[in-house]
């Protein structure tokens, strides 16, 4: 890793932390309190930003998977692995934040609403992806298998969402769309805050991605050096 790209990464890290601080300030002090939900709605700035970064991670897993199968370049596999880990972490954070929000607003931690159900299934698919990575025998095989499963998972996303919507046909609808926080009246300040928090988390995603990929590169280097020593 050259000095120049190191400096760029540091710069990205600086930009990320600055945006996170600004986002925190805006979420807690700048954005006005929502009329119906009160202060608790503020967790949405964190929740939606985590959802955005998590989905970005999952999209990158599929793209890197396709690229790996076409090129067999180890670099794509490293990106897929790093992106899956970070994406799952963000999705899990989003799930926890959403649950904390749901408890005072809906009165329950969880409900089998289509949006939540499909989100949970998607999280399971990507946890399965990480389990697959942990259990395959050698590197080349891990890369191929996980690329295949990453593509399968991405193809499944629209089907999962459709099935959760169709399923609602028979299960009682507990919460209407307008009670889900997506259609409540957003003031311009709220929209700005949301934009800043989403950008902050997207930058954080890229920063973590670079660091995670670099860790894997260093690991590969160590393996190569060990092999050199062993053959001497």
């Amino acid at each position: 890793m050259s000095n120049k790209s190191n400096r760029l990464t540091d710069l990205l890290g600086l930009a990320t932390s600055t945006l996170i601080v600004i986002g925190l300030y805006m979420s807690f002090l700048y954005a006005p309190t929502e009329v119906n939900m009160g202060l608790v709605y503020r967790i949405f700035f964190f929740h939606l930003a985590a959802v955005a970064a998590g989905f970005l991670g999952i999209v990158v897993v599929a793209i890197a998977g396709i690229a790996y199968l076409r090129t067999s370049a180890r670099a794509w596999d490293r990106i897929a692995e790093a992106s899956a880990e970070i994406g799952v972490t963000f999705c899990f954070a989003a799930l926890v934040a959403g649950s904390i929000w749901a408890r005072p607003i809906w009165g329950v931690w969880w409900t089998w609403d289509p949006r939540l159900t499909s989100f949970l299934i998607l999280l399971f698919i990507y946890i399965a992806y990480l389990l697959l990575r942990a259990s395959a025998r050698d590197d080349a095989r891990v890369a191929r298998f996980s690329a295949v499963f990453g593509i399968i998972g991405a193809v499944d996303v629209p089907l999962v969402i459709a099935s959760a919507r169709v399923w609602r046909g028979i299960s009682p609808v507990l919460f209407q769309e307008n009670a889900q926080g997506f259609t409540f009246g957003l003031t311009p300040e709220m929209v700005q805050t949301l934009a800043v928090s989403i950008s902050a988390f997207v930058l954080l995603y890229f920063y973590l991605l670079i660091q995670r990929v670099r860790l894997e590169e260093i690991r590969d280097e160590i393996v190569a050096i060990r092999r050199q020593i062993a053959t001497r």
């Binding site: 698919i125 399965a128 697959l132 499963f149 998972g153 499944d156 459709a162 099935s163 169709v166």
Partner: peptide, 14 residues
Amino acid sequence: PVLLFPVSIPLFSA
């Protein structure tokens, strides 16, 4: 099952 079941939930629900 870890790989198959989450992916095929749409199939089972339908």
